[in-house]
Simulated scan of single mutants.
Amino acid sequence: MTGCFITFEGGEGAGKSTQIERLRRRLEALSQSVVVTREPGGSPDAERIRAFILEGRAKALGPFAEALLFAAARIDHIDNVIVPALRRGTHVLCDRFADSTRAYQGALGNLDGALIDSLERITLKGVKPDLTFILDLPAEVGLGRAGRRRGEGEGADRFEGEDLSFHQALRQAYLAIARAFPERCVVIHADRPAEEVEDIIWNALSERLPRLTQHAARPLDVA
């Protein structure tokens, strides 16, 4: 039996890392094997691409070039981390995945939807999340959290540094993804205490776990 692939999406400061760690602890308490990873990154080569992107060095190349860089990192991440873990029966909890490209470079970079679809087919090779939690909160709240997390004197990364209107549009892009894929996406209102968000996520996962287990038991269609 393969593991379940669960992704967390949302704007800056939504609390994805916090909730992934809390879910990891809960699953491991039930003797479940879990791998925590992130995008861009997650594998050595993908982490190098992550640094290049988040330092803003790819911004001048435009959204299509950024999407290609994300795709290159994702291919390495899938091949070397995600698929091997799933085949071992390990659950994968990932901080961002393909929905981030669809939101950031697709909706906000104005890349054609058909282009994003084609890029996903080439990149994902049939690997898709069993469940996606979209952590939703007002953009100004998330940016405030992100700023406090960085601390004084530390600059914002490539995406955190965009203006408020960008992040407000990003929020709407994620909500549109949730509406387009309701069978996979669960919107979690993240503007509340972390413990409460954790419980809501756990309850949602518990309701869907039988379906996810049945789905994940099918062989992976990966070359």
Rank of each mutant, 00 (worst) to 15 (best):
L164N: 10
R121C: 11
I78Q: 00
D79S: 12
D136M: 04
A73H: 00
G109K: 00
D95M: 02
I122K: 12
P129R: 07
R171C: 11
L170N: 03
P63G: 05
H77V: 04
F133G: 01
L115Q: 14
F166S: 08
A60L: 09
A114D: 13
S33H: 11
F52C: 07
G42Q: 00
A173C: 11
L93I: 04
F64M: 15
H91I: 03
R121N: 13
P129E: 06
A46Q: 02
L93M: 03
D157W: 10
L131K: 08
F97H: 03
A67S: 06
R74E: 03
D95I: 07
L111D: 02
R148A: 14
A85G: 04
P84Y: 04
C94I: 06
H77M: 06
A51R: 15
L119T: 07
L93Q: 00
F52R: 12
T132H: 05
F64R: 14
D130L: 01
D99L: 11
R145E: 12
T90Y: 00
K59I: 08
R148E: 13
A103T: 01
L135F: 03
V35D: 00
Y174H: 10
L111P: 01
A103F: 01
G113Y: 03
K128W: 09
F166L: 13
D117W: 08
L108T: 04
R121M: 14
Q168L: 07
R48V: 14
P84F: 02
A114V: 12
L124T: 07
E162C: 06
S31E: 14
T132P: 06
D163H: 12
L54Q: 08
L119I: 13
G41E: 01
Y174S: 06
I75A: 12
L115M: 13
A60I: 07
T90D: 01
E47W: 05
E66A: 05
P84D: 02
L108Y: 05
I116H: 08
L143W: 05
L124I: 09
A85N: 02
D45A: 15
R150I: 08
G56H: 07
L54K: 07
L143M: 15
K128G: 11
K59G: 10
R148W: 11
E66K: 10
L54G: 08
R150Q: 09
A51Q: 15
L170M: 15
R158E: 11
A114E: 14
S43G: 02
V141L: 07
F97P: 00
A146C: 12
D95K: 04
T132D: 06
L111N: 02
D79Y: 08
R102T: 12
R171L: 11
R121K: 14
G62N: 04
A73R: 02
F166E: 12
S165V: 15
L119F: 09
P129N: 09
E154F: 15
L143T: 06
N110R: 14
A85F: 00
G62R: 11
D136S: 10
P63M: 11
S31Y: 10
V81P: 00
Q168M: 11
R88V: 03
G147T: 15
G42A: 02
G109S: 03
A139T: 09
R102W: 07
S31H: 13
R57E: 13
F97V: 01
L68K: 08
R102A: 12
A146K: 13
G42M: 03
K128T: 13
E152D: 15
G56L: 05
I122G: 09
T37K: 00
G89S: 03
D157F: 10
G113M: 09
R38Y: 04
R150K: 15
S33F: 07
L115H: 09
R96M: 01
